[in-house]
């Protein structure tokens, strides 16, 4: 019991519940079904990117090029779909975008692994290269005539119902992509040799090499994985917005990294869990989408978001000091 209470995830869970109760007291509309559906839908893109970044952080690296990769994969896929008529089925589009993203991610890994450059500098460079290349050579025009399958995907909802005022609400199906990917990443990290290798690489790279983990393969896998997820996020984003704007999805990297770190991952590698990352994502999404609900004036929005991040990160540090004697943590 003491062990459970001392986990970072438990503390974070309590924080999320407290926050929900507090917002709900201030404005009971927070608990309306429509709002809960909205929050879940908002968690999808942030959550998918956070899961990719989680794997990268566990391995001791970092990636800040994923928003550019997401925008690039989204735009190029939509252009190809427009030109060729492919894309009757949303799965084909997801596949194309994930493949494009995966290739770009592997491109990062080439520099990081073979040239031994710091991942921060490499991905800072490729982020600029990918976004710049997209705008300079591919296009700046917003694509508005997306394939029908994308619009249909964004319109697909479960538990669709009409409220007395004539308002319709429903749960976006994209939430199941997040749930599926979260389960896959959980399985990968904890039940495969590759997953153990990722933890080992982040915890002690030299030791991981000596016990025989293939570092090159692990590096290429994780950077391609985050690229694939970014590609998927690109398609979900374009579907949701009903257009593909090459300027979109910028400036997401810090929010995503914040969600993962609030979720308990260690920026120096070796630590982090899927459940923590999901809770960190939920925390940031709930704060970001409840400031109007709480009646805060716009001037205070940034202050509130910053304060919550500091409080949750501070609680994690405090817990770490308290739990220093309670043995190894993941």
């Amino acid at each position: 019991m003491r062990k459970l209470i001392l986990t970072h995830e438990f503390v974070l869970f309590v924080l999320v519940v407290l926050l929900c109760v507090a917002i709900g007291i201030k404005n009971p509309a927070f608990w309306s079904l429509g709002n809960v559906f909205d929050l879940l839908k908002s968690s999808v893109t942030l959550g998918l990117l956070a899961l990719g970044v989680l794997v990268i952080l566990i391995s001791g690296d970092i990636d800040i090029s994923f928003p550019a990769i997401a925008a690039f994969s989204m735009y190029v896929t939509c252009l190809i779909a427009q030109a060729t008529g492919l894309g009757d089925h949303i799965a084909i589009l997801f596949g194309m975008a994930a493949a494009t993203g995966g290739l770009l991610g592997a491109f990062n890994a080439v520099f990081i692994h073979f040239f031994r450059l710091p991942a921060l500098i490499v991905t800072l460079g490729t982020a600029s290269l990918i976004r710049g290349g997209l705008l300079a050579f591919v296009g700046t025009r917003i694509i508005t005539d997306l394939p029908e399958s994308m619009v249909a995907f964004s319109r697909a909802q479960l538990f669709r119902q009409q409220l007395p005022g004539g308002e319709t609400i429903g749960l976006a199906v994209s939430i199941f992509i997040l749930v599926g990917v979260a389960l896959l990443v959980q399985f990968l990290l904890n039940h495969t040799l590759l997953g153990r290798g990722i933890y080992a690489l982040g915890g002690a790279p030299e030791a991981a090499r000596r016990v025989g983990f293939n570092i090159r393969r692990i590096r290429f896998f994780i950077f391609a994985l985050v690229g694939c997820l970014a590609g998927v996020v690109g398609i979900i984003h374009a579907s949701n917005m009903r257009n593909a704007n090459p300027f979109d999805l910028s400036g997401l990297e810090l929010t995503v990294i914040a969600a993962v770190v609030v979720g308990g991952a260690d920026i120096t590698g070796g630590k982090g869990t899927v459940i923590g990352t999901i809770l960190g994502t939920l925390l940031l999404v709930i704060i970001g989408n409840s400031l109007i609900l709480m009646g805060l004036p716009t001037e205070w929005h940034k202050v509130a978001v910053g304060a919550i991040i500091i409080v949750s990160a501070g609680m994690a540090a405090w817990r770490r000091r308290m739990g220093r004697n309670s043995g190894r943590r993941k």
């Binding site: 509309a29 429509g34 970001g288 109007i292």
Partner: peptide
């Protein structure tokens, strides 16, 4: 997202 929140609020 902000508009959805405004509609709820």
């Amino acid at each position: 997202e902000k508009t959805r929140e405004l509609i709820t609020t």
